[in-house]
Design a protein around this nucleic acid. Structure first.
Length: 513
RNA sequence: GCCAGAGUAGCUCAGUGGUAGAGCAGAGGACUCAUAAGCCUUUGGUCGCCGGUUCAAUCCCGGCCUCUGGCACCA
């Protein structure tokens, strides 16, 4: 059995989770579930990044200990992921001893090896913002923005990691491993970035400025922060499980360059560890319409749609709408279009009419197919084509196209029903028509079973629900479930079910308002 | 400025070296098992602009325009 280790970025728990956080976890979950279905032994890691200046400041502001603050915010993120049906195997927090210990061991190892050295850092410091400023922070006239208050140039001793030393190695590695980063064009971006020389990386903060972090094992007056803390979670979580390197680190495009594409592989290299096999970089959800909604009084939080339409409707939408790696627009209007036309009208209605007709024309027990004519042959042939297309699409993270193809099959099933018109066959006394009726009921139910099996990693609860109302319990081998057959023959189905209820009819915008 | 991505029917997007496709929206129709759903038919496009290669380009090459994003010690 092939092992498959996949991670999400860990969220910085200073604030409430939003659509971007939720999307990344759902995307990772869909991949994890798909790999499990394909037979891999999957380990799925997510977690929370809990140290740092901002957390320390927020906790002080609320007058509570930092640990208590992150206990609360971290739980909020985790609750969301549980609600979204994210099937993580492990949730790591950077404040956990198991993580800190690994960080310290590696830091000591690097220090001993001379990969970390002490030096003076000179820069402009804003006391009000408690941070060093960069040249780019300056206003065009060279002054510092008001926000920073008084800015003074100070010199501070810190520890630095020898990043520059490994630059050539990294360029070489990326050149030889063209598919390290998905999508490809992101890798070009990294190589572009690496055309300029790197500086060594400052990895410490003096205790008096930042105490909420992991203490340097070789100098207790300093803590390390972000890079050697957060990035190492992917490794520290599995250090005793023998799972490193990860197959995929999933991240947003905002943290690719330089952290994940430059610091991370070099840090691992310096530690004598292999880099992850791949980085999978997703895009962002754009919400250009959000402002307008706010001004009209109803700020739209996409996560509210989970409450309104259900977890699977949300999961379906983000997977159906976004081409992994690109950006997408998130609007309630577009959500409703997908929900109404694809989930309610095509899939939901197919479920309902299948149950209804089986109840009405076959006393609720699915009959066996008896006839194979062109109509049946066409549906079955389309199924084979759909399945054989969708699996490779999912392997290549093209979930939006996979779902489109799957929905096209659902549509074809609806068309098949029209062709057979079981409601007419039900009125006939001709035994040939009776056989056709039984065949059509069996065929539509089988097509439905297969279609939802193919969407199982995206909408697991819906798949389970539909199997349940079809009176069916799927086997453990997912691939075997994808064969057209007679698994449903004799199953007792439920009477009727509205799976995706339509919301109040969409406010029809008049052609001319 | 540099780099990258995108520019195809009203909207969201597929797509291929040989005179353009889907879904939604719009229009018409037949039906009734069903969530006023489903099915059938149909309107609609100089495939961003200008050149080049080619017997032939939306798809290959060059230039340009527009939009979006990134450009480090911040996560």
């Amino acid at each position: 059995m092939k092992s498959f280790y996949i991670t999400t970025a860990i969220d910085y728990v200073n604030g409430a989770p939003h659509l971007g956080h939720a999307y990344e976890k759902v995307l990772t979950d869909v991949i994890a579930r798909f790999r499990r279905q394909m037979g891999d032994r999957v380990h799925f890691l997510t977690g929370a990044d809990e140290h740092g200046q901002k957390v320390q400041a927020s906790a002080r502001q609320r007058g509570i200990p930092a640990q208590r603050y992150v206990d609360e915010t971290s739980a909020e993120f985790r609750a969301l992921y549980d609600r979204l049906n994210v099937s993580y195997d492990d949730f790591i927090r950077t404040t956990e001893p198991r993580h800190k210990q690994v960080v310290q061991v590696l830091l000591q190892q690097l220090f001993d090896a001379g990969e970390i050295y002490q030096a003076e850092y000179r820069g402009f410091y804003s006391t009000r913002q408690e941070q060093f400023l960069q040249e780019k922070d300056r206003l065009p006239d060279g002054a510092w923005p008001e926000l920073f208050g008084e800015v003074t140039e100070i010199v501070e001793t810190n520890y630095f990691f020898r990043l520059k030393k490994h630059q050539a190695w990294l360029v070489d590695f990326l050149t030889q491993n063209e598919d390290f980063i998905f999508p490809r064009f992101r890798q070009k971006q990294v190589l572009e970035f690496l055309k300029d020389p790197l500086n060594d990386l400052c990895i410490s903060r003096p205790r008096e400025r930042l105490e909420w972090g992991i203490e340097l094992p070789f100098d207790k007056n300093y803590v390390t922060y972000v890079w050697f803390d957060a990035l190492l979670n992917y490794y520290s979580a599995v250090v005793d499980k023998g799972l490193w390197p990860a197959d995929y680190n999933l991240i947003g495009k905002d943290i690719l360059v330089p952290p994940h594409a430059v610091y991370w592989p070099i840090m691992l290299k310096a530690c004598g560890l292999p880099p992850p096999k791949h980085l999978l970089v997703h895009g962002w959800w754009l919400q250009s319409g959000a402002k307008m909604s706010k001004s009209t009084g109803g700020a739209v939080n996409p996560l509210d749609l989970v409450t309104e339409f259900g977890v699977d409707a949300f999961r379906y939408f983000v997977m159906r709408e976004m081409n992994v790696g690109q950006d997408s627009e998130f609007t309630r209007e577009q959500f409703l279009v997908r929900y109404n036309s694809e989930l309610a009208n095509n899939l939901g209605n197919l479920v309902n009419r299948t149950l209804n007709m089986t109840t009405r024309f076959a006393a609720g027990v699915l009959p066996a197919a008896e006839v194979i004519e062109d109509a049946e042959r066409e549906v079955q042939a389309l199924w084979t084509r759909t399945r054989d297309e969708v699996i490779p699409l999912c392997e290549g993270f093209q979930f939006h196209t996979a779902l489109e193809r799957t929905m096209a099959f659902v549509n074809a099933t609806n068309a098949y029903i029209e062709k057979r018109a079981p409601w007419k066959l039900g009125k006939s006394v001709d035994p040939k028509d009776a056989a056709l009726l039984r065949t059509s009921l069996a065929t539509m139910a089988e097509a439905l079973r297969l279609a939802v099996a193919l969407m199982q990693h995206v909408v697991p609860a819906t798949t389970a629900k539909i199997n349940s109302v079809l009176g069916y319990t799927p086997g453990a081998d997912w691939r075997a479930e994808l064969e057209w057959g007679s698994k449903l023959t004799g199953a007792k189905v439920d009477e009727a079910l509205v799976l995706f209820p339509r919301p109040a009819p969409p406010p029809k915008t008049p052609a001319k308002a």
